[in-house]
């Protein structure tokens, strides 16, 4: 049961790999070849940076259709992290509208502070409140557990049922997205210490 971490040129791959190793992921590999998805039991889409650049890099390397096929047709679980979660959306709005992977309907927009002490980027540990307590990704994740965030944009899903958890910042953001086995976290589980590891283990058990 192999875990494929997609290397499309941006992302803290070293951190992600180490955290998955720590969570006893077997046959972990970092891949630059979309053909590898055919052998993957789990797929991880990491990423930091801008939506436009991220999509361009995914397209250039030929990842878009193989990712859509693996997740939508073959039902391979996929975890998008930070920008990797945002790329699951229909559209990104950073620097004009850019089409995303369109795996979970929604838009990625810049966050707008709703209080004086809210600064952008949203950097640091903030609470995650599960909405869908039954989702396997959130097993043993207690309401209010803190995870590490660092981002300026966020994903607004078209359908409320795809927001599996929320976080109180800028009026409330979706911090965990889930559509069946296609999931994403706006925070960085690989940098969120033991709660992050719990979430990664949950993903590996999906």
């Amino acid at each position: 049961m192999s875990v494929c971490i997609i290397d499309y040129g941006i992302g803290n791959l070293g951190s992600v790999r180490r955290a998955f190793e720590e969570c006893d992921a077997h046959e972990l590999f970092i891949s630059r070849d979309p053909k590898d998805l055919a052998h993957a039991a789990h797929v991880v889409l990491p990423g930091v940076g801008a939506f436009r650049d991220g999509m361009q890099l995914l397209k250039n390397a030929g990842w878009v259709e193989p990712i859509r096929k693996a997740t939508l047709e073959d039902g391979v679980p996929l975890l998008g992290i930070c920008l990797g979660m945002q790329l699951l959306a229909t559209t990104g709005s950073e620097g004009g509208d850019v089409p995303g992977l369109d795996l979970i309907p929604g838009r990625v927009v810049r966050m707008t502070p709703t209080a004086d002490d809210e600064r952008i980027p949203h950097v640091g540990w903030n609470e995650v409140h599960p909405v869908d307590h039954t989702h396997p990704l959130l097993e043993n994740i207690h309401a209010g557990s803190d995870f590490y965030f660092v981002h300026s944009f966020h994903m607004v899903p078209d359908q409320a049922k795809h927001a599996a958890a929320t976080t109180p910042y800028c009026g409330g953001i979706t911090s965990v997205l889930a559509r069946d086995t296609i999931v994403g976290t706006q925070f960085h589980p690989e940098k969120s210490s033991r709660f992050g590891f719990q979430l990664i283990r949950n993903f590996l058990a999906m």
């Binding site: 941006i10 930091v48 940076g49 801008a50 650049d53 920008l83 980027p121 950097v123 660092v150 981002h151 300026s152």
Partner: peptide
């Protein structure tokens, strides 16, 4: 910041 994102 353009290449790697402001957050980093």
């Amino acid at each position: 910041s353009e290449r790697f994102g402001s957050q980093c």
